[in-house]
Nucleic acid binder design. Structure first.
Lengths: 164, 164
DNA sequence: CTAGCTGCAAACCTTTTGCCCGTCA
DNA sequence: TGACGGGCAAAAGGTTTGCAGCTAG
């Protein structure tokens, strides 16, 4: 039953198999696109990337797949405003998002204090916390000196508990 | 020109006038509905309430008005999931929302620590915070004892820094 | 009098679905 | 082969818009 399988299956493809999903060509491609995505693509973007690898894929399938994987807990849907849902693979531990209001780029960050604080607040109001959402909308701080050119914008990414 | 003016103008109606908006009958009604809303109605709900006061109002006008008032800073648009935008009057000071996942009811709360924490985080990542969004999705905690019937659900609303 | 509003209906956009054919297991 | 997945196009659901007539200022 396992044939020589799995060998070239993407990370998310493997997760699909684990949960007993039937692996069709389209699904495999979408799983791979998702596995390789380091950002938070919306359906249209996923469709574009998938279509590059295999043109026999329709948007409807991307929508259905993404929905299915969300139900299976493999993906998480995000809403950063702007009308379309965006997706990212489920990861261990909470993390949050800061959206650059000028470029739309998303920066992930962790904050240990937070989850605890959220629970405390819900508790205080007489509720059990089910989930929470936290997003920061911000603008890159102008460089303090002129020692660095525009390309240096990414520098911050490797500091301060940033992920990825 | 001012006639006996302003006298019976709703709070939001007055704000519209301050910003030089032309006060039509429809706009006055919508402003009043918004002024009296203690919750976070979506456009359809606003339309329903407005139509009760004056049936010569169309949804399109509600959409246009709500959008205009948002641009003028009089209203704030919220997205609590579920597809439709919801609105509330802009208020002094930050407050956040806890959405009861079972009933959809929204509870507002303040948390001083929070805004500060958000700024600190953005700062740490090299950004200037423009705005932020925080929502808790939670479920009412089961009553500890059976001393209270269902109607007691609202009890918590008067404690713990809750607003309204 | 005219810039700005409104109603109506059509247009838009993202996401979902019905139907029927194709395919994985 | 039989249950499940996919393509296509139509449908849904929320929101915006073009147009022609109306109105506050």
């Amino acid at each position: 039953m396992v044939a020589a399988g799995d060998a070239m299956e993407s990370r998310i493809g493997r997760m699909c198999i684990e949960r007993g999903l039937k692996m069709t060509g389209q699904r495999r491609v979408i799983a791979r696109v998702l596995s390789e995505a380091a950002d938070h693509p919306d359906v249209e973007e996923l469709y574009r990337r998938a279509a590059t690898l295999d043109s026999r894929i329709s948007v409807a399938t991307v929508y259905r797949t993404v929905r299915l994987l969300e139900e299976k807990g493999i993906l998480e849907r995000r809403d950063f405003g702007g009308g379309r849902a965006r997706y990212e693979a489920t990861e261990e531990g909470d993390h949050y998002h800061l959206i650059d209001v000028d470029t739309g780029k998303v920066v992930e960050f962790e904050d240990a204090e937070h989850a605890a604080l959220m629970h405390r607040i819900a508790e205080r109001l007489g509720f059990d916390l089910v989930s929470h959402r936290l997003e920061l909308f911000a603008r890159r701080k102008p460089a303090p000196v002129a020692a660095d050119d525009g390309a240096g914008l990414q520098a911050a990414d490797s500091k301060n508990g940033l992920r990825r």
